[in-house]
Design a protein around this nucleic acid. Structure first.
Length: 267
DNA sequence: ATGGTGGTCCTACCA
C-alpha cells in the first residue's frame, strides 16, 4: 500500500498538478491539505477518472481544507465522515478514514502559527500549541497501539536539527522553536509513532519538504524545512518498505511550496 | 534589518 501526503495550496489552482502526480506516482491513497475550497466546489471528477473514486472531503471557503483521495474503499461512508474537532477555531484541519484493509488514516493540517513565537502576543501561535495538545490527548486516550494506524499531514513543525537548513538560525522561527518541537515530540510519544522519513533517512542528513516562495531561487539557496510527515503506529512499523520526498515537484511550473511525501507499506 | 512570493477574493488575510 502506497500512501502520499501533500499540502497542495489550493486544489483548484493545482488540479492538473495533482493528476500529474497521481499518474506518475500511482499512490493508493493521497491525502491533501490546504485545499482552500468548500465541498461543493471540490474538483472531484479528474481524480475520480484516474481511479480515485473514494473521496473524503472536508473543506471550507478560501482557507484550510483537507481531503483523502483513495483507490481503496472506505469502511466509513459519506463525504464528511471521520472529522474530529481538534480545532477550537472551527477550521477544516482534519479528516480521518478507515480503509477497507483495516488501516485507520488520519490526515492533518496543523495551524502554521503566525510569525511571533509567543502565545501571549500571538493568538495564532497559541492556537497551534492548543491544536498539538489536542492531537496528543486524542491518541494518548487510545489503548490499542497495535492497531494499524497512519497519521499524515502538514504538521507545520520541523522537529530535528537537520529538518531545517540552519538549526541555530531557526530556533526563534515558528515551526522550529523548542516549545513546538517538544510538543510535537509529545504527540509522537503519545502513540509511539514512527516518523517514517527518519526511519529511512539518518538524522545527520538534511531533508526538507517545503521551500518558501520568497526565495529568489529555492533550489540554489535550498533553505527548506521538513514540515510534512507520515507517521506509522507500532503495529505497522514492521511493514514499512520505503519513503520518498518528491523534491523535484518544487521545480514544476505553478508548484506548491510543499512537495509530497510518499510511503510504501507491505500489507 | 528588511523584504522577498503566492492563493483567495476584492481588500486584506493567510501562509
Amino acid at each position: 500500500m502506497k500512501i502520499a501526503t501533500w499540502n497542495v495550496n489550493s486544489v483548484r489552482f493545482r488540479a492538473q498538478l495533482v493528476t500529474r502526480f497521481l499518474r506518475d506516482e500511482q499512490p493508493d491513497v493521497l491525502c491533501l491539505q490546504e485545499t482552500k475550497v468548500e465541498n461543493g466546489l471540490f474538483p472531484a471528477l479528474p481524480f475520480h477518472k484516474l481511479g480515485y473514486t473514494h473521496q473524503a472531503i472536508h473543506g471550507q471557503k478560501a482557507y484550510h481544507g483537507v481531503a483523502v483521495l483513495s483507490k481503496i474503499p472506505f469502511r466509513t461512508s459519506g463525504r464528511e465522515t471521520g472529522v474530529q474537532d481538534f480545532c477550537r477555531e472551527g477550521h477544516a484541519r482534519h479528516m480521518g478514514v478507515t480503509l477497507a484493509n483495516g488501516v485507520e488514516l488520519h490526515n492533518f493540517y496543523v495551524p502554521a502559527g503566525g510569525d511571533i513565537p509567543d502565545p501571549v502576543q500571538n493568538p495564532k501561535f497559541d492556537h497551534k500549541l492548543h491544536f498539538l495538545a489536542e492531537m496528543e490527548k486524542f491518541f494518548a486516550r487510545r489503548k490499542a497501539k497495535s492497531d494499524p494506524v497512519i497519521l499524515v499531514g502538514d504538521l507545520n513543525v520541523a522537529p530535528l536539527e537537520n529538518d531545517v537548513w540552519n538549526h541555530k538560525q531557526l530556533l526563534g522561527i515558528v515551526s522550529h522553536t523548542p516549545v513546538e518541537t517538544r510538543l510535537l515530540g509529545e504527540v509522537q510519544a503519545a502513540f509511539d509513532w514512527t516518523d517514517t522519513t527518519r526511519h529511512f533517512v539518518p538524522p545527520e542528513e538534511k531533508i526538507y519538504s517545503w521551500w518558501s516562495y520568497r526565495a529568489a531561487d529555492w533550489e540554489a539557496s535550498d533553505r527548506g524545512r521538513r514540515l510534512d510527515h507520515v507517521w506509522a503506529s507500532p503495529g505497522l512499523k514492521a511493514a514499512l518498505r520505503s519513503q520518498k520526498i518528491v523534491r523535484k515537484m518544487r521545480g514544476w511550473q505553478k508548484a506548491s511550496d510543499h512537495v509530497p511525501v510518499v510511503v510504501e507499506f507491505d500489507l
